[in-house]
């Protein structure tokens, strides 16, 4: 499982990195007379209603999906790690205030809010990333907090305190390295969620018209589902597989990072 999901994630990353090197940036936008061709040797994934190659669109879309997924997960992970560590380690008033804040975030419908913000502020990957990171860090923060609370009472944290090591160093060198496993698991879930959210927003047309992503291709496809199935099936399957692969890969990474597992 680790190899399959990890291999798939690596493959996607390679596609995303190599695409602009091997293809001209206009290639996916190239309009032609060969409209709505079924998958064939010339067009493996067929063509859309403007005669554009679906394979090229899907390859180009990989970039958007991966950037949005990975960057927003990374940003949410870092914010959550810092906030959660402060909350768990300081305790008291700071902890209470941070935890109430995360609870407010948890009852917010992320998709609706993201759609609202993007619709009002305008589309763009950076905004989508900011919205996803800004709304999903509380999950990571809560996980980190509970880990920090658990670890700070363990023997090695107390032993470090008895050795006169400063609280800051204990937090950074003893506690946080042992709390990152669950953070990575949560972050891969965030990445999968971000990819789905970006696809959904593009599907509803909430992206700029000059970017191609899996969601926007899918959106074209659903209008033509009965005449050109390939427009929906290929990007849809990729969204599904990518979200799945990120989830599974996250589980494997977390297990691999746990020094006690075999």
């Amino acid at each position: 499982m680790a190899w399959i999901s990890g291999g798939f994630v690596v493959l996607l990353c390679m596609v995303a990195v190599l695409a602009p090197l091997l293809l001209s940036p206009d290639a996916p936008f190239q309009i032609s007379n060969s409209v709505l061709l079924a998958p064939s040797a010339g067009h493996w994934f067929g063509t859309d209603d403007l005669g554009r190659d679906v394979l090229l669109q899907v390859i180009w879309g990989t970039r958007i999906s991966l950037i949005v997924g990975i960057v927003s997960a990374l940003a949410a992970g870092i914010i959550g790690l810092v906030v959660g560590a402060i909350s768990g380690y300081c305790g008291g008033l700071a902890d209470a205030m941070i935890m109430r804040t995360t609870e407010i975030f948890q009852v917010m419908p992320i998709f609706v809010l993201a759609a609202l913000i993007v619709a009002m502020a305008g589309a763009g990957e950076t905004r989508i990333i900011a919205v996803i990171a800004g709304l999903s860090w509380p999950q990571t923060a809560r996980v980190v907090r509970s880990e920090v609370l658990r670890i700070k009472g363990l023997g090695y944290a107390e032993a470090a305190r008895c050795l006169g090591i400063s609280e800051f160093r204990i937090l950074v060198f003893e506690i946080i390295p042992n709390a990152v496993g669950p953070v990575i698991a949560v972050s891969t879930l965030t990445a999968a969620f971000a990819i789905l959210l970006e696809a959904a927003l593009s599907f509803f047309g909430l992206t700029s018209s000059d970017t191609i992503s899996w969601g926007s291709t899918l959106s074209t496809g659903q209008r033509l589902l009965y005449t050109a199935w390939w427009l929906s099936v290929f990007p849809g399957t990729l969204i599904f597989l990518t979200a799945l692969a990120f989830n599974m890969f996250g589980d494997c990474v977390r297990e691999a990072l746990d020094p006690r597992s075999e």
Binding site: G155, E158, A159, R161, C162, E174, P177, N178, P259
Partner: peptide
């Protein structure tokens, strides 16, 4: 304060009951 305690703390050291949690697993 913890800072003032630092050097004095070295005069006494703990040995814990749960030896498996007494060391940073990393």
């Amino acid at each position: 304060s913890n800072r003032e305690l630092r050097t004095r703390r070295l005069l006494m050291q703990p040995v814990f009951q749960d030896a498996s949690a007494a060391f940073n697993p990393r």
